[in-house]
Design a protein around this nucleic acid. Sequence first.
DNA 1: ACCCGCGGGACGGCCCGTTATT
DNA 2: AATAACGGGCCGTCCCGCGGGT
Lengths: 199, 199, 199, 199
Amino acid sequence: MIFSLMAKDLDSKGKTLAAAADLFRRQGYFGTALQDILAAAGSPRGSLYFHFPDGKEQIGEAALKLAGDANARAIAQAAAASKNAEAFLLRLIRGMAAHLENTGFRDGCPIATTALETAVHSEALRGAARDAFQKWETEIRRGLERFAIAPEDAASIATCVLSQLEGALLLARTYRSLEPMQRAERVLTLLLRPRESKA
Amino acid sequence: MIFSLMAKDLDSKGKTLAAAADLFRRQGYFGTALQDILAAAGSPRGSLYFHFPDGKEQIGEAALKLAGDANARAIAQAAAASKNAEAFLLRLIRGMAAHLENTGFRDGCPIATTALETAVHSEALRGAARDAFQKWETEIRRGLERFAIAPEDAASIATCVLSQLEGALLLARTYRSLEPMQRAERVLTLLLRPRESKA
Amino acid sequence: MIFSLMAKDLDSKGKTLAAAADLFRRQGYFGTALQDILAAAGSPRGSLYFHFPDGKEQIGEAALKLAGDANARAIAQAAAASKNAEAFLLRLIRGMAAHLENTGFRDGCPIATTALETAVHSEALRGAARDAFQKWETEIRRGLERFAIAPEDAASIATCVLSQLEGALLLARTYRSLEPMQRAERVLTLLLRPRESKA
Amino acid sequence: MIFSLMAKDLDSKGKTLAAAADLFRRQGYFGTALQDILAAAGSPRGSLYFHFPDGKEQIGEAALKLAGDANARAIAQAAAASKNAEAFLLRLIRGMAAHLENTGFRDGCPIATTALETAVHSEALRGAARDAFQKWETEIRRGLERFAIAPEDAASIATCVLSQLEGALLLARTYRSLEPMQRAERVLTLLLRPRESKA
DNA sequence: ACCCGCGGGACGGCCCGTTATT
DNA sequence: AATAACGGGCCGTCCCGCGGGT
């Protein structure tokens, strides 16, 4: 059966992965011990090596991909549920702000911490982080194009939107305050204004 | 003499601190071992706990403060050297982009990595990161006010500018590409436009 | 059919055993992981405990027996192919020297390493090693008796011959040089001289 | 004070080393865990990495050197205490046999096991084992020359003597019997006979 | 009935951040 | 203020059963 297979898969590998993604998001990559992941997932130590023969790095890669894909889907859904570009972007940032607040400022971006930690240490993890960010950018761009943003603008705006979101998340988490998130809304709005003739 | 004192101080404590700040910037807090710092500074092992009785956390705090203050000064100087607000903000981001490129995308923000890593682990380090970011915001705000930006706008714009810079640095480092930095310039320009009536 | 049975057996159990014997010879018992054996034999993991319910120790025992019997047969063949006692012993040591050289000094005695490693750890493996060595001694003794060596001398000489061979193999492997093997030939020759009146 | 310093040194590093040499002799290199060594020496875990920064391999090297040098000295002393060549060689083998018996066949050659185990795994350990064996050969040769053995013969005889000793030790340990040691005496005696004209 | 993918505890060695001694 | 030593804990992986497939 499909369901039992999925359930089975999620009991062993998927559960570990979900726990890993969660912990990497909160504590970062180096700040999370494999022990923590196993304890959170309720998995024994040895089975980990079976599913992830390359060890922690492979878990990190898979966790980044998992979180990246989940977020990409969420972005696409936000676009589909919004009736204009501004609503779309505001939905994104407000969703993040709400999640941040709900977790007591513990759950920030699931990629950023690991990306920064491993930018120099591991090419594989940097690559996984890059893929995740790029997927997000792509989804934001697609969402914008949905609302008739000119394609030549959408890509550039998407990058700025993502930068702003990431920066605001970083500050909000560090300040333990939603103010950076709220102020960031202004930027999102400004970015959607028709670009003036550049002289 | 002031100079000899500084030199002397920089031989023992300051040198260690400079090395720590550098390594934390590139490798993050948990990714940097005390051994690495000692090796980079050429300091002997035992003397570390003479200068920093509270251990690694204290070194981290001091390193964050060092890097934070240095950057705050650089922001103030950028403001002083610019003839209008746009030039000021562009100088900031272009300076960062140049540094990033010059170090092969190794030197990103000296605070962000440690801030994210320790947001949950250490209240002291989160506090030090917060202080650094806030000093930067303050300096950016002051720079903007220098160019007649309305005080009630300057604070908000400063937060957005810092968010955008941080986010762009994160993406640029992860992508190993300056494109996010270049695209971020648009945001900085947009933020300086006179705010329209919000209807 | 005998052949298909052998082939079948050698595909599953015998293949694993052959790989084990090979690896134990080169890397020793503790230096060889079950994983290495499985990888070399191309066998799956779980089937191992079907053939060897007692685990690694049982594999070690079987591998020692396999290598011991093969070598015993080789000794008997060497005796049969030689026309006098000296030729017999020289054939033995030169065969070993050639094999050592052909494998880049990797293939030494297939028993010695495991025998020494497990002399204290496992009574079963020490027993298997003892059986192998004793079979060799017996075959050497028989070979000598074939050439009219007095039975009361043959047993003693056989022990000395085996000791000399083993010691020379050890030194040759450690030195990565055939010189100990060549020098050992002298001992083999001396042992065959008629024993003088010990007066 | 020199003595207290020596005692101090032997309490930390030397004690660990002595325990390591002992355990490697009995259980082999891979069969001995660092934990075993530390437990036997009563040393704490972390100090090991201080004294031996390169880890187990470095301990192995040092232990092989320690045992090798001690044995080389013992050989020289045996030569000095003997009144002819035969007495010298018999003293060697009988001393080893006595030690073997006294330890219940647990203490064999302190080098051989590790030498065979690591012949393929570690170049450093193979080198250390080689050095030890060569020192022994040299001491045996010197001892023989003391008793007017022709220099061109002494080296060759020394190699054969060492081979015979090592092989006999291997068999004796595996058989748990002194017989191979006793029979080896014959070889030592034969080796000292004047070499005949080789025609 | 034979086989094997998957999962499970247990150490193995390494190294980290730290403290007494001097 | 620097050498010497210290436990703790991390990651890897080792050797081993339990259930489903064929």
